[in-house]
Design a protein around this nucleic acid. Structure first.
Lengths: 241, 241
DNA sequence: ATTGACTCTCACGTTACGTTATAGTTTATA
DNA sequence: TATAAACTATAACGTAACGTGAGAGTCAAT
């Protein structure tokens, strides 16, 4: 059993934060002393770790609580999503870095704000949140963000997975093989049509995310065989170079 | 001249945000129509871009204003620091990703919170802020964070640069050469003693930052010759593998 | 028994906007 | 030319996640 001070030191959060998390019901300590001092155990620490991961991804504390309160909360699933989101964020940082370097070199104008665009991250975040039960909020979101009904987006997702599956019979070839590369182009075109303009750069980022070990990796490997995500990523990296 | 709506669309910020930035004096539009509508020009857009970069790095708006108000505000210097900070953040994300993957694999406990530690980022942020004039706040910060007086830290910095300079005569050799690798080890030991425990992993991250094109790159190249930062990074990457 | 280091619970302050509410302005259309 | 549709303005209150004292017990060591 650890005191607030000890947990604070170990986890790098303030004592006030621990107190706050207790009062809002996000993280109750395992117990209290007679005099009301908080006492944390290992389970609490693990929970805190989860919370901090969500927090790094800028989930509101209320959301985090809702997600973790859920009786069918799935730690593995959460980690999967967190990995996807972290990968997206890394991509975002890379974009910003590139912009900064451009500005540095050209000293002059580069009136580009695409690097600040977080819509892809936001979208995945929304989906992730929605996958944790609250159907009401999700419908709300769908209504707000255009009419693409969930049946439409399901159809799009199916089309995407069909293309992904198309990689399965190509697995024996080299990623640089013409047939494989053609399939990559198919993928790019499909994304451009159904989601957003998919430049080579965007595609490269997607490839990395596919192979990052999160939900994407799982789904892809399930659809096109183990190791498929990694294979596709290799093909994409060749294609985009 | 663009309206709020147009700027909002282009830059991906809300109209409210533009209004707010105007009232707090962070970004005044170039002019107003007779009826009080805001009108922005290209200069404003460039300024907004700078602001957004600072904001991505979680600088408080007041700080951003103070920095950019400063008559000797140096855009190039700002970009340099921003690059360093973005690089640090990327490293931070990589750490989190690694932690998440570990948790995913081992399903079991990995009671490690080092990945959440942002002290290096915070420290550099403080230094960056301090370099923009406000000596009062900086002294305050030094007082708070232990007694390492600025003379002490200057001595440490000098020691570091001495080691960096030590790479200069080795530039003709291959990064994997024993002499070069020995120098890398010297560097690691020095950092461990004077700053923080410098694992191979930490060192690898530092190497990348050295070569990222920001302040570090500049200082290193100035001390040990052009291209030195990149050379040192290569040596580090070999050493840490 | 006292001191110094911890801890507790209020309770107000802060940042960066989101969100109405109310009202004037400009543009497109009938 | 009237009038709706779309845009913009200020004002003012709401929110999230704590930071920062204030005032008051608690615990470990001297």
């Amino acid at each position: 059993m650890m005191t607030v001070h000890e947990v604070s030191k170990l986890a790098g959060v303030s004592i006030r934060t621990l107190q706050y998390y207790d009062t809002i019901g996000l993280l109750h300590p395992a117990g209290y002393t007679d005099s009301g001092y908080r006492l944390y155990d290992d389970t609490d620490l693990k929970r805190l770790q989860q919370i901090l991961l969500f927090r790094e991804l800028e989930f509101p504390l209320k959301e985090i609580r809702r997600i973790m309160e859920n009786p069918d909360f799935d730690q593995a699933k959460a980690l999967s999503q967190q990995i996807d989101l972290l990968t997206l964020r890394r991509k975002h940082l890379d974009d910003l870095l590139k912009l900064a370097r451009q500005l540095q070199r050209k000293g002059e104008n580069n009136m580009d704000f695409k690097a600040f665009d977080t819509s892809k991250i936001d979208e995945y975040t929304q989906k992730a949140k929605a996958s944790w039960g609250d159907t009401a909020e999700y419908k709300e979101y769908e209504k707000k963000h255009g009419k693409r009904s969930s049946s439409d987006s399901k159809k799009a997702a199916e089309g995407l997975m069909a293309i992904i599956s198309g990689f399965a019979p190509l697995r024996e070839k080299h990623p640089s093989d013409a047939a494989v590369q053609a399939q990559v182009k198919k993928l790019q075109d499909f994304i451009s049509e159904n989601y957003y303009s998919c430049t080579k750069e965007t595609l490269s980022g997607l490839g990395k995310m596919y192979a990052a070990g999160g939900d994407f990796t799982k789904n892809i490997d399930a659809a096109a065989g183990d190791g498929a995500a990694s294979f596709i990523n290799e093909a994409i990296q060749i294609y985009t170079k």
